[in-house]
Design a binder for these strands. Structure first.
Length: 702
DNA sequence: GAGCACTGC
């Protein structure tokens, strides 16, 4: 091997590093039997439950929850905390008297799988004693459900109707270390709720390194309002309990010298593992589709050149925009004598779990979204991962037996340079949706809200400005009535909500909720590489002169006329999964609209009404073709930024004088995605104040 | 004539 690399296997194995941050209050209770397998080689559900690492802590957990307002559980994967703790609580009586134990998850799939597992363990029908709630699906019975699993987003929505979450006795926030926006808002709100409801218990499940900061956050202020040692008042100092996981050891290997090209280094490492290590699949973490395609190309070439290894490797890509059938390939069992190599984005770090992985190759990078509140532009950039991510990636190698993780960075870099945790999503995102949600919950002082991680004030102010210009907030930054309250009720970006609300008066709500549903998903087309020409031709069959929004209406109509056929989608280069999701979201919007008193009405082909409704939500995203521009350069009305119509738009190369766009993607240029023609007089009509403060649009010239 | 980390309501 030409590269300066360690020799796998030649170095003394290193145990997965760990920096204990938590304070352990309790050890395992001695009384509990930790292993009781049946002598027939099968274990009953009961004894399986007792063999989980968390079982040893059952008594300790129940004691801590009883005596502390907040308990932080530090548990690695495989400890069983998610499935067991809610059951322990129920057994201890926390669900008596019609109360409910809640357990939140960041992802829908996790909610469903954990809920069915627990229902099975308790031998009850899912949706009765044990239920779950995710968007589009409420599988609970209010009269019977004692344990409820739900996404943190759904629990946030529940706070809108029941600000103190009165039906819950204990709320367990699982995977809190992932620090999604929903989790962070939820933690901030739960802390507030706790002050009003001292009997409410919180369990925060977090990774090791985050436990201390989580504990500091829930430590209520030093000025105590009452005596701490009162018999029935739980202690306000959070308890921290560590529970070991059940993963196998993963030996970490570092490169000796920093690598200059991690794609090349990935390929060398995979080949060297394949040549020198015993059977076991390989999981590689790269940043995105480009890297992955390049690595696969290179790996195939090099494996081909050396014929003795080419036969044994099955190389598969994995990323979210990959068609479903291709994604499923990575789950197929590896044939005997072969070795599977899955080259993946971050999707395999938390969202998907691959069995049979023994080797992990970690590039040390991932793509993350960053928001610049000054330019109001979101950027997807390649950044170094955190130690927490590196550990999570390494852990993927130790699920079936002891594994190995090859880090394509030096140990020195890991120890001294890598940050311990990533930047919370809250601090690198647009906050418009987040702010409207808090306003709807009655949080007036947004800037003073007690966040687990404070967002940049500039981003807050930008969000307030947008909401003000939409007429959602008034001069006192309070939700307007009815528009503000109605917009907060619609589970979409406030600009889309405003568009829906305006469609009511314009008589085109039926069309607009379709557009809103399509704008809420990634793309309705199949990903274009390799079939570009065919995809473009397919698009032309639906293209509308007014732009992409009206084109979506044509597509939706065609899909309905086909009887929602998957063959029809295939024939027209449309993503069937995406279209099914459009139907689901549209149905949810239809119900929400009805609740808000919006009468669903079709404009019967009057596209002027549709375009005016779109303008009512997206006037701030207007741009104008530069006079004498021969390359399709536009300038935004708001910031005079140079932008171009994205080549995926039906208006690409049409270059109408005035357009509004749904979003900007930023690569070597700023591209406007989902573009619609507009008459500039509509802009001032839709938001006179906004355009007085900015440059007044010139009269249209044909 | 180009490009999409990942979730979620």
């Amino acid at each position: 091997m030409s590269q300066q690399f360690w020799k796998p296997g030649s170095e003394k194995p290193r145990i997965l590093e760990d920096e204990e941050g938590g304070v352990v209050f309790f050890g395992p209770s001695l009384s509990s039997a930790s292993s009781s397998s049946s002598r027939f080689g099968y274990a009953s559900i009961g004894s399986q439950r007792q063999r989980l690492p968390v079982y040893k802590y059952r008594t300790a957990i129940l004691y801590l929850v009883e005596t502390h307002a907040t308990t932080i559980i530090v548990g690695e994967t495989g400890s069983g905390k998610t499935t067991q703790i809610p059951q322990y609580l129920k057994e201890a009586g926390w669900a008596d008297g019609g109360r409910v134990i809640a357990c939140t998850q960041p992802r829908r799939l996790a909610v469903q799988t954990v809920a069915s597992r627990v229902a099975e363990e308790m031998d009850v029908k899912l949706g009765e004693e044990v239920g779950y709630a995710i968007r589009f699906e409420d599988v609970t019975n209010p009269a019977a459900t004692m344990i409820k699993f739900l996404t943190d987003g759904v629990l946030l929505r529940e706070i809108m109707n029941d600000p103190l979450l009165t039906k819950y006795s204990v709320i367990m926030v699982d995977e809190a270390h992932e620090r999604s926006i929903s989790t962070d808002i939820l933690l901030g709100l739960l802390k507030k709720i706790q002050r009003r409801r001292p009997e409410l218990r919180l369990i925060i499940s977090s990774a090791t390194i985050e436990a201390k900061s989580m504990s500091d956050f829930f430590q209520t202020s030093k000025k105590h309002r009452g005596p701490e040692d009162h018999e029935f008042v739980p202690k306000k100092v959070p308890a921290i309990l560590s529970v070991e996981g059940r993963g196998f050891n993963v030996h970490i290997h570092y490169v000796v010298e920093p690598v200059s090209d991690y794609v090349q280094a990935t390929v060398s490492t995979v080949l060297s593992i394949h040549e020198q290590e015993p059977a076991g699949d390989i999981l590689v973490f790269l940043t995105g589709q480009d890297d992955i395609d390049a690595a696969i190309r290179l790996l195939t070439e090099e494996a081909h050149a050396s014929r003795k290894i080419s036969s044994g490797l099955i190389v598969l890509p994995l990323y979210s925009s990959l068609p479903r059938a291709d994604q499923d390939l990575v789950f197929s069992p590896t044939p005997r004598g072969k070795r599977k190599v899955v080259i993946s984005t971050n999707i395999a770090e938390t969202s998907l779990t691959l069995e049979g992985v023994v080797y992990v190759v970690d590039s040390g990078f991932s793509k993350q979204q960053f928001y610049n509140p000054i330019s109001d532009i979101e950027n997807l950039v390649v950044v170094p991962i955190s130690k927490a991510s590196a550990r999570q990636r390494a852990g993927r190698a130790g699920r079936v037996r002891p594994g190995k993780c090859y880090r394509l960075y030096t140990e020195e870099y890991f120890v001294n340079e890598m940050s311990s945790v990533g930047i919370p999503e809250m601090q690198r995102s647009k906050l418009v949706s987040c702010v409207i949600q808090l306003k709807a919950l009655g949080i007036d002082n947004i800037l003073g809200f007690d966040w687990p991680a404070s967002p940049p004030p500039e981003a807050m102010i930008r969000a307030l400005e947008v909401l003000y210009s939409l007429g959602v907030l008034d001069d006192d930054a309070k939700l307007t009535s009815p528009v503000g309250f109605q917009a907060a009720e619609i589970p979409l970006d406030p600009m889309i909500s405003k568009m829906i609300l305006s469609s009511n008066q314009l008589g085109c709500s039926d069309e607009i909720i379709t557009i809103a549903a399509v704008l809420s998903i990634q793309s309705i087309w199949v990903s274009g590489r390799g079939v570009q020409k065919e995809l473009d031709e397919a698009k032309l069959r639906f293209a509308a002169a007014e732009g992409d929004h009206v084109t979506f209406l044509n597509v939706y109509k065609g899909f309905l006329q086909s009887g929602k056929s998957s063959q029809w989608c295939h024939k027209n280069y449309m993503n069937y999964q995406a279209m099914k999701k459009v139907i689901e979201i549209r149905e949810q919007l239809r119900r929400t609209a009805l609740r808000l008193g919006i009468v669903l009405k079709s404009c019967e082909g009057d596209m002027l009404a549709v375009r005016k409704a779109v303008t009512a939500g997206f006037f701030a995203n207007a741009s104008r073709l530069e006079a004498f521009s021969h390359n399709g350069m536009y300038k935004t009305v708001r910031g005079s930024q140079e932008v171009y119509i994205h080549p995926s738009s039906v208006l690409f190369r049409v270059n109408p004088k005035w357009v509004i766009y749904h979003s900007l993607v930023s690569t070597d240029r700023q591209y406007m995605r989902n573009v619609m023609t507009v008459d500039p007089s509509w802009l001032t009509e839709a938001a006179p104040h906004f355009f007085q403060r900015h440059r007044r649009p010139d009269p249209i010239v044909h």
